[in-house]
Amino acid sequence: MSLAVQRLSREFRSPVTTGLIAGVLALAIFGVVRGGTFILVDSLVTGAIWALVAAGLALTFGVMGVPNFAQGEFFMVGTLSGYLVYTALSGVQGRPYVPFVTILMALVVGFVLGALVDLAVFSQMRRRIREGWVMNTFVVTVGISVVMINAHQLIWGTDYKGIVAYFDGPPIHVLGVSVALDRVFAISVAAVSIAGLWWLLSYSRIGRAIRAVSQDEPGALMVGINVGRMRTLTFAISSGLAALAGATLLFQFPSFPFVGVKPLYVAWTVVILAGLGNVGGAVVAGFIIALLEANTGFFIGSAWEDVVPFALIVLILAVRPTGLFGRAVRSVWEQ
């Protein structure tokens, strides 16, 4: 626990960060007072999901130095496997366990596919490429993304493969805001997954090894960590999380080849805001972006929802090139 406190105090030491956090809190309060509690509730639900997608992205970058522009396609894989599993279970739809089975299957599919992609692509690249790793992997992830989009199109077509809702019941009321059961489900899944990821990285042997690789790769080798396996695992976890997010949000993102574009865009916004490779920061920044989107949508207009957060990012990067929370996880490519 003292460790967590220590980390937090370190991150909040900078007056710029503290000022920004204060600004965000002020914005939240302003939004709630002037707009309504729904701004807060919606930001929490959306933020949790963005946090989930962005955490994987941050992890991949932090541990592997791979700027993953195919993360959105793993989200797409999640929506697709979610759809296929859910419709295959149509006989027992309505049973409360079905959505959980569905998203778990998507998690597994994303995880396995991520592992395969790493073994087939990045592990091979590691052996051959010494220089320009970030640029090369960037190009390769774009390629992977194109391949996955086209594979989807060829095999499953461009139709929208979606569902009405996982849970049928009437929406529940939180602080006077009605929230569909599916969104309650989504925020719960996101909370549990983020907590799980946090625990894994902070306290488990494997999580420590992943962090070790991200902080010092030769050091990790020196203590006996199979670095290659940790990278594969990292990419698999990150892909699994994106797929999990996709399946969980199937009710809002019906599967089609390009469904990953928007989540990818947001996830990158979040990760850049947080500081590349900073997993914890990405979670916080996910909520900040969601809050900004909601406030922009309410006070300025929804068409500006992407513009304002992006303008903010440009501003922050001008003041703090390493992002809001800096690069807490130092990435391998810096060495």
Binding site: G35, F38, D42, T46, F253, E293, A294, S302, A303
Partner: peptide, 20 residues
């Protein structure tokens, strides 16, 4: 009058505003 990006799938802000 509210307009959103062509690929937006989260309209809760607009709709809550309409509701009020």
């Amino acid at each position: 009058s509210q307009f959103f990006k062509i690929d937006a799938t989260d309209h809760h802000t607009i709709l809550n505003k309409f509701k009020s």
